[in-house]
């Protein structure tokens, strides 16, 4: 007999499966929220869903379904506020957030639920996922992923430029509602993994990490999904071996990825800016010969950034742009 591994425990297999699908779905939806500059929407829906959980506990129904129902209502309300109100929208959102969480605590109290019951939903309790629950999570997450990727061109266009999308004949409102419902379902799905208070992190942090390194929307959403899945599975596994709360581990792992990617992204952006071609100008610059001696010949290997400038290349060093001109360099 070999050593006992994490996969020998059925409850851990279920937890890993739920984590994998949640980790894929949350950043897929999160990308659209970030694109619409609604990064905190997941947070808001999470707060509202607390009331849904409370209602489930009060009525003796499964908190997952009551949470989904309330989260969808909340998401649609947020979308309505976004669509209608320009100014003051963020205040309205704040009101909904606090109303949601206070209502949840109140209703749970009325239901006689303990702080521990609510804690499981606020911060996740992935190892207690039942085999029936895990299929619900997997099915909902798979549905979310299918819609988020299948309708990506349309959702991208609507989130990117709503007016243009409308002028192109897209059913903008339907797509906006779709995004809201996707967000609500994702929040409830992730409720078991990372908990309602941390769900937004799983939707936003992988996206923020991915876009440090990417230039395109497509690569961003796919990389964010990979990061989300990796940190979720990694977090659950770590929690199993080290005995730490899985939800918090996932979020901290995701954040450390961001911390690692940020300087890399900065460097990539810096170098890209440095190598952007110079404008052609009007061709009237005077011919200025560089007076100084060069210790080396500028070239591919000299290490100075070579920047395209019209039909030739300028070598940038010490704040000057030197272009080869016969035997000497010109100042450009």
């Amino acid at each position: 007999m070999g050593t006992v591994t994490i996969l020998d425990y059925p409850f851990m297999v279920r937890a890993l499966l739920a984590a994998l699908f949640t980790g894929l779905a949350a950043p897929a939806v999160g990308t659209y929220l970030v694109q619409r500059r609604l990064a905190l929407m997941g947070d808001g829906i999470g707060h509202i869903a607390v009331t849904g959980v409370g209602l489930g506990l009060l009525t003796g129904r499964s908190p997952v379904w009551t949470a989904i129902a309330v989260a969808i209502l909340g998401a649609l309300l947020i979308e309505l506020i976004r669509e209608r109100g320009r100014a003051g929208g963020d205040v309205a959102l704040a009101l909904i957030f606090y109303g949601g969480i206070a209502g949840g605590v109140m209703v749970t109290g009325l239901a006689g639920g303990s702080a521990q019951t609510l804690y499981n939903y606020l911060f996740g309790s992935i190892t207690t996922v039942s085999s029936q629950d895990v299929w619900v999570v997997v099915a909902l997450a798979a549905g979310v992923i299918f819609i988020a990727l299948g309708f990506a061109p349309q959702l991208f266009a609507v989130c990117q430029d709503e007016e243009f999308a409308r002028a192109a004949g897209l059913r903008v409102r339907a797509y906006n509602i779709t995004t809201s419902v996707l967000a609500a379902v994702t929040v409830t799905v992730a409720m078991r993994t990372v908990g309602l208070l941390l769900v937004s992190a799983l939707m936003v942090v992988p996206v923020a990490t991915a876009q440090q390194l990417t230039r395109s929307f497509k690569v961003t959403i796919l990389l964010a999904m990979v990061l989300g899945a990796a940190t979720s599975v990694g977090g659950v596994a770590t929690a199993f071996y080290v005995d730490v709360p899985p939800g918090a581990t996932i979020v901290l792992l995701a954040l450390s990825c961001f911390v690692a990617a940020w300087p890399v992204g900065n460097l990539v952006r810096y170098r890209r800016r440095l190598r952007q071609p110079f404008g052609e100008g009007d061709g009237l610059q005077p011919h200025t010969v560089v007076p100084e001696e060069h210790g080396h010949d500028h070239g591919a290997a000299c290490g100075h950034p070579a920047v395209p400038h019209g039909d030739h290349v300028d070598y940038v060093h010490d704040g000057h742009r030197h272009a080869v001109h016969g035997e000497h360099y010109d100042e450009h």
Binding site: Q35, R37, P153, Q160, D161, F164, A168, S216, F217
Partner: peptide, 28 residues
Amino acid sequence: VGYVPQQLAATSGVPATVKEVVSSGRLS
């Protein structure tokens, strides 16, 4: 109908390439 608004809606939070933005004009 091809509509060209005055400005790109405030550059969104997620990067998008020239090709991706132009492709959205093909959705109709």
